[in-house]
Structures are given as structure tokens and as C-alpha cells.
């Protein structure tokens, strides 16, 4: 029994750390789902777009991928703001399907744009962090990049939580999401607020994209894979709380790594999907949903 647990120590640690990364991938989707009440089907592609933007920045300035965030976050936030302001706001309030389909079209456009510019080759954000491992105690080695992912995610979620609770903009976003009509009566321009919310969400996608690029290889077509992961995180964690989304990420990451450990690497994604389907079936509101 003890040796069995000992053997599982590495996959559990790795799963939890990977889960931190999944949390940050899911947080942007969760925000838009909760605030604007639409599913941004292009979220995964926005994450990958950020990976490529970081790659471009690195070719101009030979700096660490983490430092490229200074450029990538504002650019992505601007893209998100414009997309919401010019495209998605125009189809809001016309039922569920139009926003879903516009985002779907956007996802196709982004994928093919990336394919056109960057060719289908596999890319990665090379950094010395990617290959190092650190040992915790004498018996456990973990990849340094996983630890970096986890810490950056945790910091981002803490900052976001502060933003939503302390600042005027954060409160206005929450007001617009709670009751659009009442928020408008209080003098909040909800459409502009939605655009800012999307800007912040794509900002988190920028962080996710850089971390993903440091951790895994990426192609123009990997976006949908991360969309499903993000959706899994949102479903498992439930809407309405940042912490729930983070915990959802941890559960999904753990499920994937343990699945890969017991069934073989080919089944890593499968275990994530199965968890997602099980939660969708039995508790579609998520495990940690408020109310």
C-alpha cells in the first residue's frame, strides 16, 4: 500500500501542477460565460494566438517567454476588446445561437490565419525553464516549468479576485453580469463593460498561451483542444467563482495524469473528456457552483 502511494506521488504532484495551468486556460472562458453569458468558442484559438504572438516577440527581443507577457497581454486584451465591441456585441440578445456561431466562425478564421502565417510546423517557446527539473526532497522530481505554470496561474487568479472585489471596473462588471437592466439604470454602459470583460478574459488567455507554449508544442490547430480543456475546467468547477474554476482545473489535470499513469499516454485526454461528460451528466452546474 505504501509503495503504491509512493509510486503515485509523482503523477499526483504533476497532475495538480498541470491542473494549475488548466485553471488559467479555463478562467477566461469562465469569465465570459458568467458575465456575457456566451460561450466563446474561439477561446482556445485565442490562447494559441497568444503563444504565437509571444513567439514573434521573442524573435525581435531575445528575452524569456515570461517577459514577453509585457507585450502579449496588452495586445491580446486589445484584440479581445475589439472583437467584443465590433462583432459579438452586435449579436448579443438575439438568442443563443448567433453569438455561438460568430465565435465559431472567428475560431476558424484564427486557425487558418495562423496556418497561413506560421505554416503547420510544431512550435515551442524555448526557454531554459522548459528542460530543468527540480527535486523536492530526495525522492520527487518535478519539471520546473510545471511549477512555474502553477505559480503564475495562482498569482493571476489572486490578482483577478482582487480586481473583481476592489475596483470600480470589477464591481461594474459583476453588476452587469448579475442584472443587465439594473446595471444600465445605475448608469453602467453594459456593452462597453462586456468589451472590457472580454479584454480581461483575452488577457488571461495571453498568460495561458505563453505558459502553454513554454510547456507543450503548439500548432495552428491546437486551439480546439484547449477550448475543450477550458470548457472541462468551467464545467467541473462550475460558474461564478474564480476559486471553483481553479479547483476544476486541478481535478481535470489530476484525472488526466492519473489516467495516463494507469492506462497509458494515449488515454490522457480521454480521461479528461470522461470526467467532463460525467460531470455534465450528473451535475451540469459544476461541482463548486454558487447557489
Amino acid at each position: 500500500m505504501l509503495s503504491f502511494l509512493n509510486e503515485l506521488k509523482a503523477p499526483i504532484t504533476n497532475g495538480l501542477l498541470l491542473g494549475g495551468l488548466y485553471g488559467i486556460i479555463g478562467i477566461g472562458l469562465s469569465m465570459i460565460f458568467g458575465i456575457v453569458r456566451m460561450v466563446n468558442l474561439a477561446h482556445g484559438d485565442l490562447v494559441i494566438l497568444a503563444s504565437y504572438l509571444s513567439l514573434v516577440t521573442m524573435t525581435f527581443f531575445p528575452i524569456s517567454p515570461l517577459l514577453t507577457l509585457i507585450v502579449v497581454i496588452p495586445v491580446m486584451a486589445l484584440i479581445g476588446f475589439i472583437v467584443q465591441y465590433c462583432l459579438l456585441n452586435r449579436v448579443l440578445g438575439k438568442g443563443m445561437n448567433p453569438p455561438l456561431l460568430v465565435a465559431f466562425g472567428l475560431s476558424i478564421i484564427l486557425q487558418n490565419l495562423l496556418l497561413l502565417v506560421f505554416t503547420p510546423d510544431a512550435r515551442t517557446l524555448m526557454t531554459s525553464i522548459s528542460v530543468k527539473t527540480i527535486s523536492l526532497g530526495s525522492f520527487l522530481n518535478i519539471p520546473l516549468v510545471y511549477l512555474v505554470d502553477f505559480i503564475v496561474s495562482l498569482i493571476t487568479i489572486a490578482l483577478l479576485s482582487r480586481f473583481f472585489n476592489r475596483t470600480y471596473m470589477g464591481k461594474a462588471i459583476r453588476a452587469a453580469s448579475d442584472d443587465e437592466g439594473a446595471a444600465q439604470l445605475m448608469g453602467i454602459n453594459t456593452r462597453t463593460i462586456y468589451s472590457f470583460a472580454m479584454g480581461i478574459a483575452t488577457g488571461t488567455a495571453a498568460i495561458a498561451g505563453v505558459l502553454v507554449g513554454m510547456t507543450f508544442t503548439f500548432y495552428p490547430h491546437t486551439g480546439p483542444e484547449y477550448l475543450i480543456i477550458a470548457f472541462g475546467v468551467v464545467i467541473v468547477g462550475g460558474l461564478g467563482s474564480l476559486l471553483g474554476t481553479f479547483l476544476g482545473g486541478l481535478i481535470l489535470g489530476l484525472a488526466q495524469i492519473l489516467g495516463a499513469h494507469f492506462l497509458g499516454a494515449g488515454f490522457q485526454l480521454l480521461c479528461g473528456y470522461l470526467i467532463l461528460l460525467i460531470v455534465l451528466t450528473f451535475k451540469p452546474t459544476g461541482l463548486f457552483a454558487k447557489g
Partner: peptide, 28 residues
């Protein structure tokens, strides 16, 4: 049975996830 418990967007993503699951199963 499970998929019809989902509505709207959940149904969309649920069906997509089922297809992705099949894809992984068949490729393994």
C-alpha cells in the same frame, strides 16, 4: 440519456466532447 440532460451550449459542447472521445478511442 446523458446528452439530453444538457441544454443549449452544454449540449453543443457535450456532443463535441463525445465526438472527441470517439476520435481518441479509435486512434488507440
Amino acid at each position: 440519456a446523458p446528452i439530453f440532460r444538457m441544454r443549449g451550449v452544454y449540449f453543443a459542447i457535450g456532443t463535441w466532447t463525445v465526438a472527441e472521445t470517439l476520435r481518441i478511442l479509435f486512434s488507440n
